[in-house]
């Protein structure tokens, strides 16, 4: 555990905790082997995790809505270089608000190798609302259970293994402010990124009367037209919603690309 008092003057930012094997690349990752996106509710410590990993110092505060623009940075871990994208904090991915559109489009079309969903352990129920939605869009997810110290203080205990089993993806308890759990988080990101950890994300039942039939039919039409997309059901749901971006992607055929494997020439992506 890191403590701020132990570091010398001038170094007291976020860099005081040494994470073995982590190399912070700040603003310029150069080339990279993988893209990691940070999603999460506002005020869950997303920016703190971002700062921890990149060595950058985005402002954080106990106050929803701090990060507005999309922030980017980079880090390297166990020989792989990652580009890290901090998505705007959102409660959901269902609405037409600009923030949610940015987050939704990036998770779907930005094709991140791993999406880290930062959740607030003190308000897990609401945070799971977003996490479950992310699990419908992409398979490679790591849930960062942040603020576990606060949760403990408030008398909330989370069964991490059970949660991970329910969600079908790794769940890592963290205290990002203190740097606790960062190694485990990086290991999980690395594992998912290289395929050592296989995710079987929980699919939502969405037992809404009248919806299931329509969703099944449209899903089979989508897979029929564009191949076996992992998120076909979610695409179908968005089409029923009238999502402009997805409708457009279907119209132009761009949606079919989501089925293809992540391009192998990753190192050259810039």
């Amino acid at each position: 555990m890191g403590s701020c008092a132990s570091c010398g003057a001038g170094g007291c930012g976020t860099a005081e905790v040494r994470v073995p094997g982590l190399q912070r690349l700040g603003l310029r990752p150069g080339t990279w082997d993988g893209i990691v996106a940070l999603a999460g509710n506002p005020n869950t410590g997303k920016s703190t995790v971002f700062n921890r990993l990149t060595g950058l110092r985005q402002h954080t505060g106990n106050w929803p809505g701090k990060t507005i623009a999309r922030a980017e940075g980079g880090f390297a871990y166990r020989g792989r270089r990652y580009r890290l994208i901090d998505l705007p904090g959102t409660y959901s991915l269902l609405s037409a608000s600009p923030d949610e559109e940015v987050a939704r489009d990036f998770i779907l079309f930005g094709r991140p190798d791993v999406v880290v969903v930062v959740t607030d352990a003190t308000a897990l129920e609401r945070n799971l609302n977003l996490a479950l939605q992310v699990l419908q869009i992409t398979e490679r997810v790591v849930v960062c259970l942040n603020l576990t110290d606060e949760a403990r203080a408030l008398g909330v205990e989370v069964d991490v293994a059970g949660l991970s089993e329910d969600l079908g993806v790794p769940v890592v308890p963290c205290v990002a402010r203190e740097g606790e759990g960062m190694i485990a988080l990086l290991d999980a990101v690395h594992g998912v990124s290289v395929g050592e950890i296989e995710c079987r994300p929980r699919r939502l039942k969405l037992s809404v009367p009248g919806l299931t039939g329509a969703l099944d039919r449209l899903t089979s039409l989508v897979t029929g037209a564009f191949g076996d997309l992992p998120q076909a059901r979610w695409v179908a749901l968005r089409l029923l919603h009238g999502d402009r971006r997805i409708t457009e992607a279907v119209r132009t055929g761009e949606i079919a690309r989501l089925g293809a494997a992540v391009p192998a020439e990753s190192g050259a992506r810039s």
Binding site: Y91, S92, S95, A96, S97, R126, N129
Partner: peptide
């Protein structure tokens, strides 16, 4: 947006 925000908050 007023409705979605309320829904999002639970």
């Amino acid at each position: 947006s007023e409705r979605t925000r309320l829904l999002d908050l639970g």
